[in-house]
């Protein structure tokens, strides 16, 4: 598979949430350069070109990383921590996705350097709006800086 020009790395273990998020991004026209991984371990493999991503160009980083907070093996928070403590990739914006605004996650994510935090709404209309915001965020990022 060709992993070149991947602009959004999207880590989400829930098949349903992944489908709905990708569909919403699709509808906004942003998902053609998106790559979906199913847990934090795979996200780190992608970033560091390990395992099945061994052939990927390590100099190419995604422009935006979407991480679900709660994932098996390696959680979104652990991936966030790794990214933000690595000078090479630290500057890539990370948006955290979560099912709940409960618990200590929000503060922890911001303390670790997350750029944004989205509580996935139950309602699909609102979900679509939230994902669209990610799209807008990404669009601003991908504009060439002067």
């Amino acid at each position: 598979m060709n992993y070149e020009n991947i602009e959004i790395l999207f880590a989400e273990d829930s098949k349903d949430d992944a489908l709905l998020t990708i569909r919403a991004l699709n509808k906004s026209g942003f998902s053609n350069k998106l790559h979906h991984v199913i847990d934090g371990a795979e996200a780190l493999d992608f970033i560091y070109c390990r395992g099945k991503y061994a052939g990927r160009n390590p100099k190419e980083f995604p422009k935006l990383i979407l991480l679900d907070v709660k994932m098996p093996k390696v959680s979104g928070i652990e991936v966030l921590e790794k990214i933000k403590s690595d000078p090479l990739i630290r500057s890539v914006p990370v948006v955290m996705l979560t099912s709940s605004n409960e618990g200590p996650d929000i503060e922890r994510c911001f303390a670790l350097g997350a750029n944004s935090y989205i509580v996935k709404p139950v309602d699909s209309d609102n979900f679509f709006k939230a994902v669209k915001e990610i799209g807008v965020y990404w669009m601003i990022l991908s504009q060439p800086s002067n």
Binding site: S14, D16, D17, L19, L20, K70, T98, S99, S100, N101, E102, G103, K120, P121, V122, D123, S124, F127
Partner: peptide, 15 residues
Amino acid sequence: SHDLRAPIRAINGYT
């Protein structure tokens, strides 16, 4: 909040 909301979100989304 995590585990109850997720399936409801899926029901809402798929519908």
